[in-house]
Amino acid sequence: MEFGNSGSLREDGIHLDMDRLKKGEVNMAVTFKDGVILGADSRTTTGAYIANRVTDKLTQVHDTIWCCRSGSAADTQAVADIVKYQLELFAMTNGKPPTTQTAGAIFQELCYANKDRLSAGLIIAGWDERHGGQVYSIPLGGSLHKQPYSIGGSGSTYIYGFCDANWREGMEEADAVNFVKDALKEAIKWDGSSGGVIRMVVLTAKGADRHLYLPDTDYKVRHE
């Protein structure tokens, strides 16, 4: 990433460059036997500086519908906030939880209608009673893709091969968690702007279950 010369130093010394505050990162979502798992690293950079090394990049938009945001933090946060509101409204007015598809449709509408003004790449993953676990990705232009699993962010470039070789349909939960973890570890290893901890969320009929793995223990131990 080219280092920006616009912006200013905040009083706490953090260089804020709104044009450049984009996350170099890696994130992914995979379907498995009982639902879906989302995973991401935790590094946020402004230029060479790691502005946050324990960022939570997995965003909840409904009980069991989450998303991975990549691109402009400001843009993707704004979009996710709008969708979160819409889904909450949907649940209240219709007396039933929204499906992952509903979330995908609303995300896509926003991303497509504002494609000229947004820099947002999204992976939406969720579990619902009717469709089970599903993964949708919305790349830059605002198209909507249904996928068995999806990877995104700058770090994903380095793990296409890994994922292609190791992905299996209908994995057990433990296997799927390990697959996500191993893939993210590879990305963290090779991508300069990915790093920190590994966060995951497992979405099934039982709800949302969060995982945290620290580099201190070589991502081996699940922390609370």
């Binding site: 379907t31 498995f32 036997k33 009982d34 639902g35 879906v36 598809q101 995908g104 449709a105 896509q108 579990w127 009673e129 009717r130 469709h131 089970g132 676990g133 599903q134 993964v135 949708y136 198209s143 909507l144 893709h145 249904k146 996928q147 068995p148 349909e169 209908g170 099934t204 009929a205």
Partner: peptide, 23 residues
């Protein structure tokens, strides 16, 4: 199951997991 209007691609060939059985 109906797709989202205009969506591209498909999920795993085995279908989505974690559906509530018998419903």
């Amino acid at each position: 199951e109906t797709p989202v209007d205009g969506e591209v691609g498909n999920g795993p060939a085995c279908g989505a997991g974690g559906k509530v059985a018998g419903k």
